[in-house]
Simulated assay, not measured.
Amino acid sequence: MTEFILRQNSNEKTVNASRQGSEIRVEVDGKTAVFQLVAQNEDGILLERTLSDGTRQQWRLVGHKEGTRRMIWLNGRTHKYERVLPRGGGGASHDASLSATIPAVVADILVSEGDQVQEGDKLILLESMKMIIPIQAPYSGVVTALHCTKGESVQAGIPLIALDEV
């Protein structure tokens, strides 16, 4: 389970999310929703949820992230928010923003252990579906470990690099 805080305007919400196979569980403000991942491709993802009365709802989701800022298009509506990152105690080294969001191949590693980086610096380049996807530093810090090698196939959600805040 991954826990993080989302900030939209001045409102903050704690979110817990987990994925097992095609099932995605999201808990916000004590309410849990269970989704099934129906499809995932270069056009985004399609989620489905079965309500208590048996009806099914579908959501088309496309997103963009830059550091801690996120923008998603959900069924044609735009939502902007910021992911509040954990600080200190090394917890940031397991941050999901330092992981692949979809299965990919490590195209290039642009940093080494011990390198000091600034927020927004490109750390790793991934290739998936003929696209190059940069993994960027969500905050300034020091690279403490690399958990991947160039040419390696990586799965979504697995930390690729450890970054401790300076």
Rank of each mutant, 00 (worst) to 15 (best):
I102F: 02
T32R: 02
V26N: 00
L126G: 13
V84F: 06
S128A: 15
M129V: 14
N41S: 12
S140H: 02
V154M: 03
E12F: 02
T78C: 14
A92H: 04
E165W: 00
M1Q: 12
E27K: 04
P134D: 04
I132A: 00
Q36W: 04
L146S: 09
A145C: 12
A100M: 03
D115R: 00
R77I: 05
L61F: 15
S93R: 05
L85H: 10
A33K: 09
I24C: 10
V26R: 01
S99P: 00
L74E: 12
G114E: 08
S93E: 12
R56L: 09
R19H: 01
L123Q: 01
N9C: 03
G44C: 04
Q136F: 02
I161C: 01
G157T: 09
D95N: 13
S22N: 12
A162F: 04
I124K: 04
V154D: 01
M71P: 08
Q40F: 08
I132D: 04
I158V: 14
E119A: 15
G157R: 05
M71W: 06
Y81G: 07
Q58N: 12
V62I: 07
L163K: 03
E48Q: 14
R25C: 14
E66H: 05
G30K: 08
D43V: 01
R87W: 00
Q36K: 12
M131Q: 10
P86A: 00
I158Q: 11
E165R: 02
V84C: 09
F35P: 11
D95E: 07
C148P: 14
T32I: 13
R7N: 11
H79L: 12
Q20P: 03
Q8Y: 10
V117M: 00
